[in-house]
Amino acid sequence: MPQRILLIDDDPLVLDGLMTAFRAMSQYEVFGARDGIEGLEQVETFGPDCIIVDVRMPHLDGLQFLLALRGDPRMTHIPVVILSAMQQDDDILKGNLTGADRYLIKPQRPAHLFAIIDEVMALTEADRLARMRALAEGE
């Protein structure tokens, strides 16, 4: 059974591009959402194995989405990759502290995204804990 990936981005062109790329170039099964609220609904419906989320979005932004996700015991284990245009250190730190497993700055090529997805899906709970600890100590 193919692994399910949820893509959340409010820019229709970016979302369309990513969905097309995932369908054409990877084995993943892919779903799309245009903001955090739709994203949470999709998580409920499809139970994705990995999520790629933008930060700046209307209604519920990427960080709020992550907070909601990490706060729910049923979903807290899902690996999340932030894919955002925001590239300042603050933004990256915020994203990582909120619970993202990777923070990627746009633009990224699809092939690289696939590699990252495989990487984060291979992460164990211990890896995550170690990463969070490193972040907290880096503060």
Binding site: D11, L13, V14, D16, G17, L18, T20, A21, A24, M25, R56, A85, M86, Q87, I105, K106, P107, Q108, R109, P110, A111
Partner: peptide, 22 residues
């Protein structure tokens, strides 16, 4: 400007990669 520059670049790259690959 970040938002407005990076998003279309991202979209363009993705579409072109798809075209190249398939």
């Amino acid at each position: 400007i970040n938002h407005e520059l990076r998003n279309p670049i991202m979209a363009a790259i993705t579409f072109i990669d798809v075209l190249e690959a398939t």
